[in-house]
């Protein structure tokens, strides 16, 4: 499943990232790599969400969330 399908409050583990190279690199340097745990803190309907990765909050857009494949 993609992170965009996740529910608020749940934590997921990153399986892989299907985005263009530049976007992938930007996520990687923030510590989002394979096996990283990601928690969804809040989200707006059909839009951006706030996630917590390695103790830091990030707001990410819908396309980012759709490109991050995770498992529960």
């Amino acid at each position: 499943m993609s992170l965009a399908d996740g529910t608020v409050g749940s934590s997921y583990t990153v399986k892989n990232i299907c985005l263009d190279e530049a976007a992938k690199r930007r996520l990687e340097v923030l510590g989002m790599v394979q096996g990283t745990s990601v928690q969804i803190l809040t989200r707006k309907r059909g839009s951006a969400m706030v996630i917590k990765v390695r103790g830091t909050r990030f707001a990410i857009g819908k396309e980012f969330a759709m490109g991050i494949n995770v498992e529960a």
Partner: peptide, 10 residues
């Protein structure tokens, strides 16, 4: 293009 919002919320 992709919507590129990615920002740290300190």
């Amino acid at each position: 293009k992709t919507n590129t919002l990615l920002i740290e919320l300190p």
